[in-house]
Amino acid sequence: MPKEQGRKLVAQNKKARHDYHIEDTYEAGLVLQGTEVKSLREGRASLVDGFVDIERGEAWLHGVHIPEYLNGTWTNHAARRKRKLLLHKAEIEKIDKRVSEKGLTVIPLSLYFSDGRAKVEIGVAKGKKSWDKRQAIAERTAKRETEVAVGRRLKGMRD
Rank of each mutant, 00 (worst) to 15 (best):
H65N: 12
S114M: 10
H88T: 04
G50C: 09
I54W: 04
K119E: 09
V48I: 11
K89N: 10
E101G: 00
I66K: 05
E93K: 13
L87C: 09
L70V: 13
I66L: 04
K89G: 06
H62G: 02
K84R: 15
T73M: 08
H77E: 03
E93N: 14
L104E: 11
I107C: 09
L111E: 11
Y112E: 04
N71T: 08
V106W: 07
E91S: 15
E55G: 00
G57H: 08
L85P: 14
T75D: 15
H65Y: 02
F113V: 06
E101F: 05
N71K: 14
G116S: 10
I107N: 10
S110E: 13
A79S: 14
D115I: 00
L61C: 03
K119S: 05
E91F: 01
H77I: 01
R98Q: 15
H88F: 00
R117I: 14
F113N: 07
I92Q: 10
T105N: 06
A90D: 14
G116M: 02
I66S: 10
V52K: 06
L109F: 03
N71L: 13
L109I: 02
N71G: 11
K84P: 07
V64G: 09
V99F: 03
I66F: 04
K84H: 12
V99N: 07
K82I: 04
D49R: 13
L61R: 09
H88L: 05
G63L: 04
H62D: 09
V64E: 05
K94N: 13
I92E: 06
A59Q: 11
R117Q: 13
K84F: 01
R83Y: 03
P67Y: 02
D115M: 06
G72C: 07
A118W: 04
A90F: 00
N71S: 14
V64C: 06
H65W: 01
S100H: 11
I66G: 08
E91Y: 03
G72V: 02
S100L: 03
E58C: 05
L70D: 15
E101T: 14
F113K: 08
E93F: 04
K89M: 07
I95A: 10
E91R: 10
R98P: 00
T75S: 06
D115R: 13
I107L: 09
T73R: 12
K102F: 11
E68W: 01
L87A: 06
R81P: 00
F113M: 06
I92R: 09
H77Y: 04
S114R: 13
I95T: 12
E58P: 00
R80E: 07
I54F: 11
S110F: 01
H77T: 09
K102V: 00
R98Y: 06
L111M: 05
A90Q: 12
V99M: 13
L86S: 12
F51V: 03
Y112Q: 05
N71H: 13
I107V: 15
I54A: 07
R81W: 00
F113S: 08
G116T: 07
